[in-house]
Computed example of a mutant assay.
Amino acid sequence: MRSISELQSLADFWGIITGGGGHVGQAAAAALMELGANVVLWDRSKAALDIASANLAEYKNQLYTICCDLAIEEDIVKGVEQYREISSGRLNFLINNAAFVGTDNLTGWAVPFEQQSYDTFSKCIDVNLAAPFLLTKLCMPLFEITSTGCRSVVNISSIYGVVGPQMAMYEGTNLGNPAAYATSKAGLMQFTTWLSSVGAPNIRANNIVLGGIYRNQDEAFVEKYIQRVPLRRMATEEDIKGAVIFLCSELSNYMTGQSIVLDGGWTAI
């Protein structure tokens, strides 16, 4: 029987994190590389990737980047080919993390329902749901030829894929909770369930369901938010590390089609 240290080792593992230039993507990458993984960050912004590379410089021999706009099908196809060359075709984990979020400054986005834009709704579905579908599909042959370590898809969802928003929290702020975001995250969770069945036994597929992450939001919003959280705080990027390691390593070898909810208890009450 293997030890815990052997099961959690990611030495020689290879994987992709989309939205890799963001806070959550960088935290996930740092955790995985600390245990030995090679990580390829995907992001549409080269500037964001450059900043991430600088922030993660201690892992420079394990870190690679691909500039890719997940709203463009051809970019995703090219990105997979670039990844194949970088990793020599090995893939142990895919973390679908990139997403339009409720704070994005888009036309017809973080506004009252009657003002929300069909075009923006469609763009959100493309990035938050259609892109993970396409990327996962294109990565399946890479998973299938990877013979060592685990083969894991981790989709980053949200509490708003599970429950409805408390809109009173947003009153008097520039924040919002678009229908497109909730719809895309709920769809991503069901895609995970579907994939866990159809992709088995070649891959495992699980969700990480995130609550709100503190990023210097309006004080009134934060106070209203944490009053609904049993742990009385918003999440930090560090809170995701343990779940990412668990799902991307052999610690979770018999887990698929499930959700790890990191919300401080928001959905429990």
Rank of each mutant, 00 (worst) to 15 (best):
D119I: 12
V127A: 11
P112Y: 10
I125P: 08
G102N: 06
I125M: 15
F100P: 00
G108S: 04
K123H: 12
F121I: 11
N96M: 04
I125A: 14
N97S: 03
W109I: 01
T120K: 05
D104H: 10
A98P: 00
D126P: 00
T107L: 09
A98Y: 09
G102R: 05
W109G: 03
D104A: 13
W109R: 03
C124E: 03
N128W: 10
W109E: 06
L106N: 03
F100E: 12
I125T: 04
N128P: 06
C124K: 03
F113N: 09
Q115F: 12
S117E: 06
T120M: 02
E114K: 14
N97Y: 01
T103P: 00
T120S: 15
W109C: 01
F121M: 07
Q115M: 13
D126S: 15
P112N: 10
S122C: 08
E114Q: 13
F121V: 10
Q116H: 10
D126T: 15
T120E: 05
N105Q: 13
P112C: 10
A98C: 07
L106W: 04
F121K: 05
N97C: 10
E114P: 00
F100Y: 14
T107M: 08
K123V: 04
V111Q: 06
G102T: 02
E114A: 14
Y118F: 14
D119N: 11
S117L: 06
